[in-house]
Design a protein around this nucleic acid. Structure first.
Lengths: 243, 243
DNA sequence: CGGGGGTTTGAGTCCGTTCAAAATACGTGG
DNA sequence: CCACGTATTTTGAACGGACTCAAACCCCCG
């Protein structure tokens, strides 16, 4: 009954930005049910706010429209790690909903964010009526799983320099101004140095020193939050190098 | 329409061992479909064999009945990390099936293993007919996701000593002979030192040295694969300590 | 009894951390 | 718009955990 038979196109949710393919919860939801049964609310959060805390009950699923969110896990001793960066077009909070568990991490706003929220109840209806959507959700989580396994491998085996290069290359897609001609890329970091450090699992001091090295090697230049990469190909090369 | 309405009890698959709750693919499958539509095959693998390789197409899902499997991811430079240890009663290979992707890791047999295999085709039927089962699968992956996030946090923030203590504590449940009286635990490690090292993301030399330290502190004693833990409470305490 | 892989030990190095101080950027009120 | 106070970032120096390389050791198997 729910949804059309063929896979719901990889579509963005209303005003959702570029979006990671197939992650769009909003688009997903809207194609599954009539919008009258699907209560979506929209919210705006300022930098530094938390959308939910580790240990909170899951009350629904979020989809980021604009801004930047970090999902951070903390242990009993206060150590913490940023487990994921949520970029516009991506969903978050879905893991706990799907597992029927409390939130396993805190969602912190790094950049003023607009997001839409679909309450648990709506989603339950949606899932019950539209098996299609369930499959889609499952894929989403299965991919999240692969992604964090990759992050785990990267973080446990590569030095900070490579992890930073990797992050820059990843951010480039969304925040860059590529110069069609020269392969030079200018991007505005959506993160502070501290956040940069947390995102790759190191300290701010190390970030500063690593940045300096990258500049010495002319792979990237940092002026505040503006990063200039003379050649992404070169940076990529450095990232892949086996030194 | 398949399956009874209420949640299929958290049950073990036939001969599957203790099993992690709700992970039992076999039990899951059996309650969803008649066994004639569900083709399960049983296989035995020797130490050192690979059940599937990173990059292989997913052809179905496995459930470990006895033995021990490591899921290892490798990058382009040959660096690798054990992303998960599969213990009896647990499913593996399901991520790729659910995401409809190629295997993202290699399944290596660490201890002679018996397992059952449910081919893709059977599972597709199962999922199509029994939404219940789909939900269950989704939960499974959602929990896998939480677990590896926890591993990520542990590995990026804690020194080898703690990670080793954590692994011992985890293995204890399944492989230990607890002494009801004294809190002393004796367990036979299902892994070699090399595998121990891989499992916590370090080198064999570091494992050897760390073992020595644990023995100096009288927290655990190693004779070959036999580990004696005078007090799991003490070991746990050391693991949680904030030094 | 002689390999041969796995494990342990030793020495030296390196990357990243910690602690502390200096420099810079930032926001707020005057 | 400037000045000030605060927070962030950068720099420096020293430490330390884990790694590398290499050799010795051990245990299991043939």
């Amino acid at each position: 009954m729910g949804a059309e038979g063929k896979p719901i196109a990889v579509r963005k949710c209303g005003t959702c930005g570029g979006g990671r393919e197939d992650s769009s919860l909003c688009g997903l939801a809207r194609s599954g049910l009539q919008s009258d049964k699907l209560k979506r609310t929209h919210k705006v959060y300022e930098v530094g706010q938390n959308i939910y805390l580790e240990g909170d009950n899951s009350d629904g699923v979020y989809c980021l429209k604009a801004g930047l969110i970090a999902i951070r896990k903390t242990d009993v001793n206060g150590n913490s790690a940023v487990v994921r960066l949520v970029q516009p077009g991506e969903a978050f909070g879905h893991r706990s909903f799907l597992a029927n568990e409390k939130h396993a991490g805190t969602a912190e706003v790094l950049v003023k964010s607009k997001l839409c929220f679909i309450p648990k109840a709506s989603l339950d209806n949606l899932l019950a009526e539209s098996p299609d959507v369930a499959v889609r959700f499952t894929r989403r989580v299965a991919r999240d799983l692969r992604e964090i396994e990759e992050l785990y491998l990267l973080t446990t085996t590569q030095p900070v320099r490579k992890r930073l290069a990797h992050l820059l290359l990843g951010l480039r897609t969304r925040y860059a101004n590529e110069d069609g001609e020269t392969d030079e890329t200018v991007l505005e970091l959506p993160l502070s140095r501290q956040e940069l450090a947390a995102a790759i699992g190191t300290r701010p001091e190390t970030i500063a020193r690593t940045i300096k090295k990258l500049e010495e090697d002319k792979l990237a230049f940092f002026k505040g939050r503006i990063v200039t990469i003379p050649s992404t190909a070169l940076l990529q090369e450095d990232f892949e190098a086996d030194y």
